[in-house]
């Protein structure tokens, strides 16, 4: 086990920031921490990094208790902060060399790593430019790169895509996947559902300091037993066909509105092979299928949509 957090409680004066939080990260997996602002994501990862002492419970990293003083643990973690923590008045190379130096990289090894990280993050052409001439996306990539020079076994990313364009976001998400493919464990926090869905092999959903659910995406969806919605547009609709569709045991409901059938089935069940023969004679114009997603999971578990809670 790379990280093990057990029943951690953290208070800031009267406010309970983490309430009996437990989570685990296994080797080589990408764990997504999902929740609105103030859910406790950053507090959780600051406790894992060793920047925050917990009031109760234990945090273990690489099998050792995390007290923030163990340099061996620190050497094996790469921490990507939510805010940009780079020196904008300096060049990217100077930044990378400085942060590499903090992890005892020196000489040729440091230079090699700087070039390698810059190449992976697409910054190699502008390594010697001052960071304040970079775009927001490039700064974000450099912010990530500064945490990777020492080839950490565990990378912790706190909302690494805040405030950047979709292209840079895609780049970063792809990069996180590549990291995991290379065997690096990743903790990825975000309040963007689609990001967590895209990168995480296991997801923890947090709200108001509580861990309200965890599991793989299919597990979480199965847990809420959400419905799938199939919308079928036909040229000429028929009430008889609606009745026949309603008669299929796996279908929960069928609504006919003008020339569109709105078919509701329990999540995870496919009925296409049964409905297509019935609808084909009506000339199918369009089919849309919406499976329950993480947004539905969040909505079911917290009673609010994530984008409203942010």
């Amino acid at each position: 086990m790379i990280v093990e957090v057990e029943e951690v409680i953290k208070r800031f004066k009267d406010r309970l920031a983490l309430d009996c939080l437990s989570l685990a990260v296994e080797s080589g997996e990408v764990v997504g921490l999902l929740g609105p602002n103030g859910a406790g994501k950053t507090t959780s990862i600051r406790a894992i990094v060793g920047l925050l002492a917990v009031d109760e419970g234990t945090v273990s990293v690489f099998g050792k208790r995390q007290d923030g003083r163990n340099k061996e643990i620190k050497r094996r973690i790469g921490y990507v902060t939510q805010e940009l923590t780079i020196y904008e008045e300096m060049s990217a190379r100077a930044n990378l060399e400085f942060f590499g130096g903090l992890y005892d990289l020196t000489g040729d090894r440091l230079r090699e790593r700087v070039e390698a990280v810059a190449a992976v993050l697409g910054l190699d052409g502008r390594l010697d430019d001052r960071v304040n001439t970079y775009s927001g996306g490039m700064k974000r990539r450099l912010n990530i790169g500064c945490s990777l020079l020492h080839e950490p076994e565990l990378v912790i990313m706190d909302e690494p895509t805040v405030g950047i364009d979709p292209q840079s976001r895609s780049f970063i998400l792809e990069f996180v996947k590549q990291l995991a493919e290379g065997g690096t464990s990743v903790i990825y926090t975000s309040h963007y559902i689609e990001e967590v869905e895209a990168v995480a092999s296991r997801i923890y959903i947090m709200d108001q300091g509580h861990m309200i659910a965890s599991g793989t995406l299919p597990e979480l969806i199965a847990r809420i037993q959400g419905d799938s919605h199939i919308l079928v547009d036909v040229r000429i609709a028929s009430e008889d066909v609606r009745q026949q569709l309603r008669g299929i045991p796996d279908i929960t409901d069928v609504v006919l509105e003008e020339n569109q059938y709105h078919i509701v089935v329990p999540g995870g069940i496919s009925v296409f092979d049964q409905i297509i023969p019935l609808l084909a004679p009506l000339t199918i114009v369009n089919i849309n299928s919406k499976q329950p997603d993480l947004e539905d999971v969040f909505l079911t578990l917290t009673g609010k949509q994530l984008r409203d809670a942010v």
């Binding site: 973690i77 939510q82 923590t85 942060f99 903090l102 992890y103």
Partner: peptide
């Protein structure tokens, strides 16, 4: 500032 977290997360 937030830079403290990055510096303190390192073994330096």
């Amino acid at each position: 500032s937030s830079m403290r977290d990055r510096l303190m997360a390192s073994p330096a």
